[in-house]
Every structure is written in structure tokens, then in C-alpha cells.
């Protein structure tokens, strides 16, 4: 029981930093909040609404996202999309993700050979 909680904590910690990467990655095409939530969940990346909605605001404030209200449909929705700065950050983060992945693999294999 205690080990399960421990594992859950570590996994949550591991995922926390990747939420931004997942958001920027998905928002290369415009999404509104709830649609993004569903898209992420379908891709196996479940995020709570109370984490995601404030995060979108923060990323917008940092200039990584742009937003636009769409009032053409019955319900007005705020659509988010990555900005030019956001794209640069996304690219840099994706590269970092690959480097980390390679590094972890290399570490695992090194241990295997010894």
C-alpha cells in the first residue's frame, strides 16, 4: 500500500513537467479548454481541468500561447494556439525530451552490460 502511494507520487512528479510539453504540442492546432482536455485524455495523457485551465492562462501570459474568442457558435469559446515563441520553446523542449530519453536508455543499457 505504501509502495503504491510512493510510486504514484513519483509518477505524478515525472508527469508534472511534461504537461506543458503535451499542451504546446497539441496546440499547434487551435483548441478550446475542454477540447484540449479530451484530446490529451484520448492520447493517454489525462490532466485535471483544475490544472489545465489555469496552466493555459499562465502560458498565454508568458507569451507561449495566443488566444482568440470564437463567438460564431452557440457557446462562445476561447481558442488557444502556440505563438512563434511557443513554437521555439516546444522545439527546444521536444529536443530535451529526446535527449533525456536517450540518456535514460543509455543508463539502463550500461547497467545491463555490467
Amino acid at each position: 500500500m505504501k509502495d503504491d502511494e510512493l510510486l504514484a507520487g513519483h509518477l505524478q512528479e515525472l508527469r508534472r513537467g511534461t504537461v506543458v510539453l503535451a499542451c504546446l504540442s497539441t496546440l499547434e492546432r487551435p483548441h478550446y479548454g475542454y477540447a484540449l482536455l479530451e484530446t490529451l485524455e484520448k492520447s493517454g495523457f489525462p490532466v485535471d481541468g483544475n490544472t489545465l485551465y489555469p496552466l493555459l492562462r499562465r502560458l498565454e501570459k508568458q507569451g507561449l500561447l495566443t488566444s482568440e474568442w470564437n463567438t460564431e457558435e452557440a457557446r462562445p469559446r476561447k481558442f488557444y494556439q502556440v505563438s512563434a515563441d511557443g513554437l521555439a520553446v516546444l522545439e527546444r523542449m521536444t529536443r530535451e525530451w529526446r535527449v533525456l530519453d536517450d540518456a535514460i536508455r543509455a543508463l539502463g543499457q550500461g547497467e545491463h552490460h555490467e
Partner: peptide, 10 residues
């Protein structure tokens, strides 16, 4: 406005 929309979507 946005939060209300998100809740209604949900």
C-alpha cells in the same frame, strides 16, 4: 466566461 464554457462542455 471561459470557465463557465468549460463547465458546460464538461
Amino acid at each position: 466566461r471561459e470557465l463557465r464554457g468549460s463547465i458546460q462542455d464538461s
